[in-house]
Simulated assay, not measured.
Amino acid sequence: MDHAYPEIPVEKLKLYHSMDRKLYSILVFALKRDPKVSVNMIALWIWLELDVLDAVVPNILLSPLNSINGLADEAVACLRCITDTTYLSSSDASEISLSQSVLGEQLSLKFFHENRALAYRGVRMVVENICVKVLDDLMEMAMPRNTERQMVMIPPVDEPMMPRFGGLRRTGESSRSVVPPMDPMISRFGGLRLTGESSRSVVPPVDPMIQKFGGLKLTGESSQSPVPPLHMEEPKENRILFATFSRGYPVFEWELRSYFYRVFGHCVESITMQPVKANEQSLFALIVLTSSAFVDLILRGEEKAKFSVRGKQVWMRKYSPKA
């Protein structure tokens, strides 16, 4: 008989992500921004908090409403920079001075352009593994309001950059969306696409740059899980990741646990850090996951993958015991 590992209740996940939910509510209800685009903004800020900076979402929440709106505009510019290789040199590009002031001086459009592959994968991962679980009810409430707004605002006046990302569009712009949904749970929010990807229409119409990252489902849509069932019978050696760290940039067990929990939920069974003497740094760790499915999900089919945990570089690959 198969025994599946219990999943964390959705309500507990939503409680853990209460600040992310609060910020999303401000975007879509107080600032009346597009619900789908706002998901990508939240995913971008969570990714920055996981991989690059500390306390991104809390710092944004401490800002006044007009500053949050300005940060949202700059987040759209960052997302465009990630998905469009020509955006940085276009006349539309401008520096993100508010983000630099509130979040970190190292942020710039050049930073997102140079790290667009890592950022693209990271933001998409956050949408699929976090937003899909913790923002679905808020988006469902926001969508009717947004639909009414589309009917009375042609063209939109308060979000001039939104037509590139989805939601409202100007007269004459294409309403085709791109890339058939990866999974029934992914299609609702939409996401970003890279230049040159094919397009296929979906319902409701979304702008061509919105579909790639993935999204949420609403009531009545398929709840098929993108992750295969987790079975306890799997051999342990099939579900171990080998993680290595850079000398001089110590990574601690609690940082790894926090990273995996926030991005993938309950997927870690145990973490064994390299044994070291006091005041010495562990340079590797063995991470036992609850299922081999998470190994494939985390590595995205690659032999090894690079992550940034609280700004520190971590390489991960499937563990292969020496003969």
Results as ranks from 00 to 15, higher is better:
K14V: 08
L15K: 15
Y16L: 07
Y16H: 12
Y16N: 07
Y16M: 07
Y16W: 10
H17S: 07
H17K: 12
H17G: 05
S18P: 13
S18W: 09
S18K: 10
M19G: 08
D20C: 09
D20E: 15
R21K: 11
R21C: 12
R21M: 15
K22L: 12
L23V: 07
S25M: 08
S25V: 04
I26W: 02
L27R: 01
L27Q: 04
L27M: 12
V28L: 02
V28D: 01
V28I: 13
A30L: 11
A30F: 11
L31T: 11
K32Y: 07
D34N: 14
P35W: 01
K36D: 12
V37K: 00
V37E: 01
V37I: 15
V37Y: 00
S38K: 00
M41T: 07
M41A: 12
I42S: 02
I42M: 08
A43D: 09
A43W: 01
L44G: 07
W45E: 04
W45D: 03
W45P: 01
I46N: 00
L48S: 05
L48R: 00
E49A: 06
L50C: 14
L50E: 15
D51E: 15
V52E: 04
D54A: 05
A55S: 13
A55D: 15
A55M: 11
V56H: 02
P58V: 07
N59Q: 12
N59L: 08
I60Q: 02
I60R: 00
I60N: 02
L61A: 07
L61E: 09
L62Y: 10
L62T: 10
L62G: 10
S63E: 13
P64T: 05
P64V: 04
L65A: 11
S67R: 13
S67M: 11
I68S: 00
I68H: 01
N69I: 07
G70R: 01
L71G: 02
A72W: 03
E74R: 02
A75E: 08
V76I: 14
A77I: 04
R80C: 15
R80M: 15
R80P: 10
C81A: 15
C81H: 08
I82H: 05
T83K: 03
D84K: 08
D84T: 08
D84P: 11
T86Q: 13
Y87P: 02
L88N: 12
L88V: 13
S89H: 09
S90M: 07
S90N: 13
D92R: 14
D92K: 13
A93F: 06
S94T: 13
S94L: 08
I96C: 03
I96T: 01
I96F: 03
L98Q: 07
L98F: 06
L98S: 06
L98C: 09
L98M: 15
Q100M: 10
Q100A: 09
S101L: 09
S101I: 06
S101Y: 15
S101T: 09
V102F: 03
L103D: 03
L103S: 10
L103H: 05
G104N: 06
Q106G: 14
L107D: 00
L107T: 02
L107I: 09
S108Q: 11
L109N: 01
